[in-house]
Nucleic acid binder design. Sequence first.
DNA 1: TCCTTGTTTGGTCATTTTGCCAAATTGCCA
DNA 2: TGGCAATTTGGCAAAATGACCAAACAAGGA
Lengths: 108, 108
Amino acid sequence: MDSKTLSKYEARAVIIKAMAHPTRLFIVDQLAKKERSVNELTEMVGDDVSTISKHLAVLRNAGIVRDERRGAQVFYSLKVPCILNFFGCVEQVLRTTADEHLQVIKIR
Amino acid sequence: MDSKTLSKYEARAVIIKAMAHPTRLFIVDQLAKKERSVNELTEMVGDDVSTISKHLAVLRNAGIVRDERRGAQVFYSLKVPCILNFFGCVEQVLRTTADEHLQVIKIR
DNA sequence: TCCTTGTTTGGTCATTTTGCCAAATTGCCA
DNA sequence: TGGCAATTTGGCAAAATGACCAAACAAGGA
């Protein structure tokens, strides 16, 4: 792979890596429903605030979410809704895998 | 987040993590066109064979690709084509981000 | 059976990622 | 300005990831 091709895939990988964490997936799922403050998200997840803040920074730097300060609070919202299409396909992969396990059981 | 909800997002994260690497993205892109042997993919990427083999194992364990041995060679192919939809959205995120940088330049 | 080609596995090391705490920052209001 | 609540940043230790080499495995042909 030449370096130009590589950098194309590196740029893509940054976006996908930003989604590649259970907590960040949960956050994206919540933000798909409505915007949330850091504090709200922190309570929903149950980790330290600083941890959530860093997860949000990852999503923000990747361009997936947007932040807006209103008074003392910072509200995050989903910037690119098509991200949700990911989930549909991910579910399909999970279903396919599950089906195969059932097949194995059946054949036995 | 309760442990049941967590495990749901952990399962999803396994799939997405499997895609979160430039080399693995390249491989998926190639397999979308046609099946390939480990050796062919190795030559296209230019890393050590063992490295490619391990990347393929990650994709296989995630349920994204399928392997089939024919003689001495093992051919990999894409099992879940909807994975390609990822790319469209990823490009959109990249475009959005690029546009914002342009805005910043314009405003200056 | 031995050899050769193609692939996977085990081991090691460097790098990156995570999550917590403590400290710094921001904005509002008395 | 001082104080308070919300958020971010710096720093650190533990865990996960990625890449290479060497060794083990698998399949087919001489």
